[in-house]
Amino acid sequence: MLDNHAKLVQFFSVAESVTGRKKLQKMIYILQKCNIPFEEKYNFHFYGPYSEELTLRIEELCNLGFLNEVKEDKSNYYQYNYRITSDGKDFLQQFGLDMPDYQIKVDKLKSRSSRFLELVATMFYFDDLPMEETIEKVRTVKAKQKYSDEEIQDAIQFINELKDPVTQ
């Protein structure tokens, strides 16, 4: 019952706070690809992997008072910050959820920009292809972002570090 909600609340207990819905979307997707058992269904959207289920679940958690959402007006768009509330912490305590330790991964993800995480998430989305084709696909579907070679190399290294059980 509500296991998937509890997993997200637990994520915020690890991450403390996340700024930006896009960043949040990409963080959960990347963690999923690193075998952290989040179950939100993702599809490819205009800005890369996106989960409607995640959006709605976050909204539910805010409505339940387990997460606190702060909206900032950035003239062209709104930016949202999320953090866990004391009710959220109580819920989690009662739930007794069993999740792997992924604090280091979360810290790594939080330290990077949403633009970079969009690149990493998109590369993960095409990870069934050989690396050269993945890069070509990313350049096709993300033509507007104009990712540089350096950014792509950085993303490859970042993915390897995330997956490496020794360095993370």
Partner: peptide
């Protein structure tokens, strides 16, 4: 609405 390029 899309927020900060989250969705179109």
């Amino acid at each position: 609405p899309g927020e900060e390029e989250e969705r179109l």
